[in-house]
Design a protein around this nucleic acid. Structure first.
Lengths: 196, 196
DNA sequence: GTCTATAGGCAGATAGAC
DNA sequence: GTCTATCTGCCTATAGAC
């Protein structure tokens, strides 16, 4: 059995590396930050980073895995806490707005732009993120149709894909303007089109 | 007056550099290709490239300028050749689909993802591209409402922004899947929502 | 776990010959 | 216009001491 270590300070270095790298990816892109950037900010040397993550590819995989897990948790909370599909969809759009408020792009959105330069495992993880979001949205649309809080034409899978695309695109375009209102206009329009 | 040089082969090197760099940007992003990549493909040395474009920043500006000009020309042709706003909007969406068919991202879309790492003049040019597109779309929406070939709620500027965001996002998400149908689903849904 | 030191490569860029 | 040669700097990554 595992040893309890409630009294020991857990070595959070790996987490702190991920925190810094996460922000750097979401602001600059995966190829546009270096181990040196992380090391400087964290106050350790580049060499030490390789102890925690052997190479940048492994760091990248860990970044997406953690990001996807957190996103997944957020979707679970939305499902648990909110009453109807319309409210859930609003909360979903708000997840994106919060990321943009931090002047960041969705991690997988920015990685999608760099897709052709990513190592294979990172590519799969990006696709996996989109797939899970689309699946969740498709289920949500089905629920919304049944309870009449959402209306749409066509297959839920296609509409789900349209929602994901629109929100990613709204972030992408709004961020250069540094204008959250620009995102909200696109998101609001999307919501309006799905409201009965 | 300018000397006619119909008999001379014009030195198209600068154009060929732009052609190669344009593809590299749209596939990999501005920070993920090098002068060496262009030089190898063109069969000249890196040093020669600096004769035509002193630095990568200048090359980048020239790339956006040419891209924006071509896009502008395409919009003019659409305005000239097509009868109504609905047909024009379809043609506009098709411009994006054609880019994606070439396995490329919209140049300014991919530059938007890298925005924080771009030199100032390139940033302004990206914004300018989005602004012009949005202006054109807003005019189109006004026309469509007047002639009853398009329907929408809210300000044309906001809807225009939503259209631009959706198409950029659809490209961004569809490209990793290498699936044009994925783009068409999102674009079709967008068009359907604007059709009376 | 973190350090120093360093390897080996590629980036953008320049000088000057032709 | 294009070349050779070279510079400087940054990148990821590794070896080995502490």
């Amino acid at each position: 059995m595992a040893v309890a270590r409630t009294k020991k300070e857990p070595p959070r270095t790996a987490e702190r590396i991920l925190d810094i790298a996460e922000r750097l990816v979401q602001v600059r892109g995966f190829n546009n930050f270096s181990y040196a950037d992380i090391a400087t900010e964290l106050g350790i040397t580049k060499a030490s980073l390789h102890y925690h993550f052997p190479g940048k590819a492994e760091l990248g995989q860990a970044l997406i895995a953690r990001y996807a897990q957190r996103f997944s948790d957020a979707l679970e909370r939305i499902d648990r806490d909110l009453p109807d599909a319309h409210a859930k969809l609003e909360a979903y759009a708000n997840l994106y707005a919060e990321v943009l408020r931090g002047k960041r792009m969705c991690m997988c959105g920015i990685l999608a732009a760099e897709y052709q330069t990513l190592p294979g495992p990172m590519r799969s993880a990006v696709i996996g993120f989109f797939d899970e979001n689309q699946r969740w949205l498709a289920d949500l649309l089905g629920q919304g149709k049944a309870e009449r809080t959402l209306k749409f034409k066509g297959a839920p899978e296609d509409v789900a894909q349209g929602i994901l695309s629109t929100l990613e695109g709204a972030m992408l375009v709004a961020r250069p303007y540094g204008d959250l209102a620009r995102f909200n206009a696109a998101a609001g329009q999307l919501l309006a089109g799905l409201t009965p």
